[in-house]
Design a protein around this nucleic acid. Structure first.
Lengths: 338, 338
DNA sequence: GTGAAAGCGCTAACAT
DNA sequence: ATGTTAGCGCTTTCAC
C-alpha cells in the first residue's frame, strides 16, 4: 500500500491538515514543522493520490483528446505534442480514436465528462455537433483543430493548407511546368477547399489558365488517388506534373505512375502535401525537407492547441483565440529542385 | 453540474443505496423500483463519476501504456489496438512516451501509481528495471511487449522477428540472389539478435556460407543505414541484394541506393522489415503485402497484450503466459516477386 | 501556527 | 426489499 497523508502525519507528529498545507506550499507553517513533514514524506516516498484530488477538486488534471485515428500520419506527431505539453504541466491525457463515427464520439464525450477532464482538444467531425454540445453543458473547455467549431470551441488551431499548396504548386511552376494536374480530396470540411484554392492561386499568380479537366476530386483514399492519376494520365497526356492534396491519394498516384513505368520526375513530376516519410528515399534531393522535422507543423499544432487549452482552463474568460499554423506540406517529388 | 446519485434518488423517491444497486444490476430490487430508478436516471442523464468510483474501489478502470515514442511506426498501430480493447471493456487508457529515458520512466511509473491504474503494458527499456520495480511494489500487473521482463511482468507478448527475417531473406534467395548483404541494428535488447539469427538461418538453409564483411550492425538510425549501405556497396560490389533489419535504417539504405542512381531491383534488390507505407509506391508488386493490413501484426500484438492484461487484472493467480506473434515484417523491395 | 471535521460521489456492510 | 452509514484520500473552512 502506498503511503497516504495520514501516514506522513503520524510519522511527522502533526495533523493531516498540516501535511497537506506543507505539500501544497501554503503559508502559515513554521519552518521546523515544514522540514519535519518534508522529511517524513520523503522517507515514506509519499505520492498524493490523483484520484482523491480529482474527486475533491471536482476536476481531474487530465486533457482529453478526440480524433479520428491516431494512425493517420498528421495526428501521430500531433498526439505526441499534446502529450509532451500535458506532462510538462503535470497533466495526463486521455486519447480517443473516434473513426469519425458519431456514436463513438458520443460515447467518448460521455467518458470525458465521467472522468471530469479539465479540457478537451478535438478534430471536429462534421455532423457530431450534438455530441460535442455535451462538453459545453458539462462546462468543459474545448479547443478545435483543423476545422472551426463555432459556439462549442472558443479557441481553434487551423492549419495553413491553402498557402502550403500554393507554395508547392508554385515550385512546380518555377521548375518549368505549365500543365499541372491536381488530385484533390473532397468532402470532409474545409481542407480540400482551401487546398483547391491554393492550387488555383498558384496558377493564377503565374497567369496559367486553369483547366477543369486537369482536376479530379474524390475521397481521400489510396484507391481514388490511383484512379485519378490513371484518368489524368490517359485523358490529359500533355500534363507534365501532378499535384496531390493528401497523404493516401499520394500513395495511389505513386502506384499508378510506377505501374506505368513512368520515371519521376523525368516523365511526370509529382508533388504532394503530407508526404510519406520515405519521400527522401525516392528522391534524395528532398531528404532535407523531409527529415525528423517532417512532422514539425503537426507537432507545432498540437503544442499550440495544448497551450491554448491550458490557458483557457486557467482563465475561462480570456478572449477566444484562433491560431493559424504555417504550411503543413512537403513535396513528395518534384523536379530539379536542387 | 452533472446529476449525481442523490439527484436520481430524490427524483425516484428512494435512497441512494437503492439507486446504486439498480445501476450495478445487483439482485434484491423490486421490479417497480428498478424501472422507477432507471427512468429517473435516464431523465437526469445520469453518468456515474469514474473518479468517485476509482477512489472508492482503490483502483481506476485505466490501462497504462509505457513506450518509447508513439511516432515509431510499430507502436502507432499497437497503441490503437490497446485503445480499442480498453474501450471495449470500458477502460480508458493513459499513454506515456518515455523516449527510453530512465528519468522519464520513473516519473511516468509514479504517475501510473498515483492514478491507481489497473495495469500497465510496457515495452521494457533496458536499465530501467528499478523504475519498473515500483509497479510490482504497488501491486500493479504488468505485461511486457517485445522484450521479456523477468520478475516484473508475468505475461509477455513477443514478436517473431527471427522467423520474419528468415522468410524475407529466403524470398531473396528464391529469387536467385546468393550474395546478400545485411544492415542490422544492434544494442537495444533482443530484436537485433533474433533478426541476425534469421538472416543467418536463411543463408544456412540454402547452403550459402555467411561472409562477415556482408554484415554491418549499428544504431537503428537513418544515418547508419545510409553509411552502412555505402560501405557495403563500396566494399562488396558483388552483392546483388541488401537486407535491412529496421525501419529507419531502411530509409537510409534507400537514400544511399537512390543517390547512386542504382535501380531497384535491377541493380540491387532491397528487402526490409517494418516497411514504410510507401513501399508499394516504389514497387507496385508489393501493394498487396503492404495495404492497411501492413500494421496487422503490430495491431495484433497490442490486442493480445491488452487482453492478457485484462485477464491478469481479473485473476492475478492465473498462470503466466507468453505469446509469440507472427512475422512483423514486410519486404520493402524485392525482385521479380510477382 | 495548528488541528478537527466536513464533504467530494460512490459502494458495501450492516440494519431493518 | 430497502435504508443508514462509514469511509476511500484529499483540501479547506472554521475553531483554537
Amino acid at each position: 500500500m502506498p503511503a497516504k497523508l495520514a501516514d506522513v502525519a503520524r510519522l511527522a507528529g502533526v495533523s493531516i491538515a498540516t501535511v497537506s498545507r506543507v505539500l501544497a506550499d501554503k503559508p502559515h507553517v513554521s519552518a521546523s514543522v515544514r522540514t519535519r513533514v518534508l522529511a517524513a514524506a520523503a522517507e515514506l516516498n509519499y505520492r498524493p493520490s490523483r484520484v482523491a484530488r480529482s474527486l475533491r477538486a471536482q476536476r481531474a488534471r487530465v486533457i482529453g483528446l478526440l480524433l479520428a485515428d491516431i494512425r493517420e500520419r498528421l495526428f501521430t506527431a500531433f498526439v505526441r505534442a499534446v502529450e509532451d505539453v500535458a506532462y510538462t504541466h503535470r497533466y495526463s491525457f486521455l486519447l480517443c480514436n473516434t473513426d469519425e463515427d458519431p456514436d463513438k464520439i458520443e460515447v467518448y464525450v460521455d467518458l470525458m465528462a465521467e472522468e471530469h477532464v479539465a479540457g478537451v482538444i478535438l478534430v471536429p467531425t462534421p455532423g457530431a455537433e450534438r455530441a460535442y454540445q455535451r462538453l459545453v453543458e458539462a462546462q468543459i473547455p474545448v479547443v478545435a483543430i483543423e476545422r472551426r467549431l463555432p459556439k462549442i470551441a472558443q479557441d481553434a488551431v487551423m492549419l495553413e493548407h491553402a498557402e502550403a499548396t500554393r507554395a508547392v504548386v508554385a515550385r512546380l511552376i518555377d521548375a518549368g511546368h505549365r500543365r499541372i494536374g491536381a488530385v484533390l480530396a473532397h468532402g470532409e470540411g474545409s481542407a480540400a477547399h482551401t487546398r483547391r484554392r491554393g492550387y488555383l492561386q498558384a496558377l493564377a499568380d503565374h497567369d496559367i489558365p486553369a483547366a477543369p479537366e486537369w482536376v479530379r476530386a474524390g475521397p481521400a483514399t489510396v484507391a481514388f488517388g490511383r484512379e485519378a492519376a490513371e484518368v489524368l494520365l490517359d485523358q490529359c497526356p500533355r500534363l507534365t506534373a501532378l499535384y496531390v492534396a493528401a497523404y493516401l491519394p499520394a500513395l495511389g498516384v505513386l502506384q499508378a505512375v510506377t505501374a506505368r513505368r513512368l520515371r519521376i520526375p523525368e516523365d511526370v513530376a509529382v508533388a504532394a502535401v503530407d508526404a510519406p516519410d520515405c519521400s527522401d528515399a525516392i528522391h534524395p534531393l528532398l531528404a532535407e525537407a523531409n527529415a525528423p522535422e517532417h512532422q514539425a507543423p503537426a507537432y507545432a499544432a498540437g503544442e499550440i492547441a495544448a497551450n491554448l487549452l491550458l490557458a483557457r482552463i486557467a482563465d475561462r474568460d480570456r478572449p477566444p483565440q484562433r491560431v493559424v499554423v504555417g504550411a503543413v506540406s512537403q513535396p513528395i517529388l518534384h523536379p530539379n529542385a536542387a
